[in-house]
Design a protein around this nucleic acid. Sequence first.
RNA 1: GGGGCGUUAGCUCAGUGGUAGAGCAGUUGGCUUUUAACCAAUUGGUCGAUGGUUCGAAUCCAUCACGCCCCA
Length: 506
Amino acid sequence: MSSNQENQSVDNAAASAAEDNKLIAQRREKLAAIREKRNAFPNAFRRDSLAADLHAKFAEHSREELELQGHPVKVAGRLIRQRGPFSVIQDSSDQIQLYVNHKALPAEMMAEIKSLDLGDIVGVSGVMFRTGKGELTVNVEELQLLTKALRPLPDKWKGLSDTELRYRQRYVDLIANEESRRTFKLRSQIIACMRQYFEQHQFMEVETPMMQVIPGGATAKPFITHHNALDQTMYLRIAPELYLKRLVVGGFEKVFEINRNFRNEGLSTRHNPEFTMVEFYQAYADYHDLMNFTEDMMRHIAEQVLGNSVVTYQGLEIDFAQPFNRLSVRDAVLKHCDEVSEADLADRDSLKSAAEKFGIKVDDGWGSGRILMEIFDEKVEHHLLQPTFITEYPTEVSPLARRSDDNPEVTDRFELIIGGRELANGFSELNDAEDQAARFREQVEQKDAGDDEAMHYDADYINALEYGMPPTAGEGIGIDRLIMLFTDSASIKDVLLFPHMRPTAV
RNA sequence: GGGGCGUUAGCUCAGUGGUAGAGCAGUUGGCUUUUAACCAAUUGGUCGAUGGUUCGAAUCCAUCACGCCCCA
């Protein structure tokens, strides 16, 4: 920023001070006083320690040992608590206590320290010691204000609990709420662990277009945008699937992508318009291979990141060490829904009357596969708490999956259900270019008939398949839902740093 | 889209028709190896918005906005 602009913004700040509440006005006055004396925003302080490092390094040091050593440190962070001569600063790693002995420090420095507010960012030089109560503390020899905070922090004990403010002003949430910091650190670690797992298994990370001319790979309403120079309608992707499979055609036989998808749908505790998925494809593998891989990966993440194979989600203990259950849609319905007998599954009519017993309105266009899935969704899915692979999805509801060799009515597909919710979806891929072209044509007919979620015909994708895609299996895992599970979060908004919110009224 | 709940000081919350409250934060002073530090004094409000009912509305009614939960 040029000095001219800077002056202007400073003037604007002064002009708006009258509109601030008293707490902010007082802080602005303190800042103005500092500007009189020196550069109020110095950037020459260099710390040599993080709070967590100090706690780790001196964990075993007694009061006497520390006093003998007189170990000097430089730390920096946000001032988050003050109690008498003690303060606490918080950096990215942890918190560390400061001791300000007013008898030992020059009067001028004491005056500056006295005018500090909670939220200010300071740099401190001092010596490590341990208080009478045993708390590791920096005995302050020099303290410098590095950044004045103009806005007061939330309640020091309760933090920020207003959910709306936590989501809209995540920066305040992160300053004030340890739980929130923990969630997002875990999110980062889980994704890093997953990425590492893929790399260890010789998968190659790729990035495919997020702005697409033909949105494909799923049935969903896309967001529409426009490229000005090309005067072209473009869509934010609903899935990376068709591009990743083009790469398998090209000879990258194990690929994965961790990135955002965008779907133009409603919001809920489990849906955000943009969400993160990992999709991965492996040539010369089938859906059984992916189930084994997924089971292993989940167990690995739980053990590596949480240090425990048992995850507690909303009071429910989920054990990743146990072998995951595996059963077909059909067997799951029979096992978990006492009202349905084998005879009910015999044909469409018997399925229809079974579904209607549960208040499901059966559409004339639905085949027996669709009706079976409606019963599953309504009566079974929420019972599947421990990790469970559901297999043999009806062909009718699986337009992208390969038909089973044993039974053309079902596909080589699975979903992973944990805690009653779908977490992953995978299948052996359809690599028959002519079959795929026919399925696209069916989708286009549905689109022409008014279904705005139906797929486009992607001629280039057919072209790719015509070059030959090896037998391949692919899978998508909803990262946000996985993070919810591993961080015991009830809402997807709790695992998104900046969840989508309606604009506030002015 | 429908239903329920919520919105009061910077933050966390009381307050169901009669002078707008508490704790924390802030300010002033005391205390200086404390642990949500403590003691004393003190500042701080468009009660989400707009209408209505009433002598009188944070409180009752209607509409709207935003959020949370449940349902579609």
